[in-house]
Amino acid sequence: MLYEQELKTFVEGTTNFFEVAAQQPASIGSPYLMEGTPSVHEYTGVINISGKREGVVYFTAPKAMLTVLLMKMQENDFSHETMRDLVGEVANTISGNARRDFGRDFVISVPSVLSGEKPAIPQKPGQRSFIIPINWRSHSAKLVVSLS
């Protein structure tokens, strides 16, 4: 069973990124559960977790949101690579936060970045995931926590 604190650590890692990097806090939408593999947006940053918990946590965002985020960060390069870079950094932040809070119990991988509509995210069959919408400005991304 996932603890509230664990979920909060991942959520805060994500919202913190927006607040610090773009000086505009993100809010979280209505969270829900999902069985099977949730759909993803164009860009996805994934961290794998093993140890006391097993599974994946990923941040998936649409291109439009990343573009605005980059603008807010005063970037003017909106290439595919930069987008990948950005979701990677978000995942990196989530991973750092998690290491700080659960470093003793979890083994947390270096983030990897996937792009495209149907990327292969390894997921345990029958695993229920927490989907937490991350709303920022008019855009919406998803934080998916899929741990057992």
Binding site: A21, M73, E75, E81, D85, L86, E89
Partner: peptide, 11 residues
């Protein structure tokens, strides 16, 4: 390893 971060730090 992130371009964004490199530019961000520089800027």
């Amino acid at each position: 390893d992130s371009n964004i971060m490199r530019r961000r730090i520089e800027r």
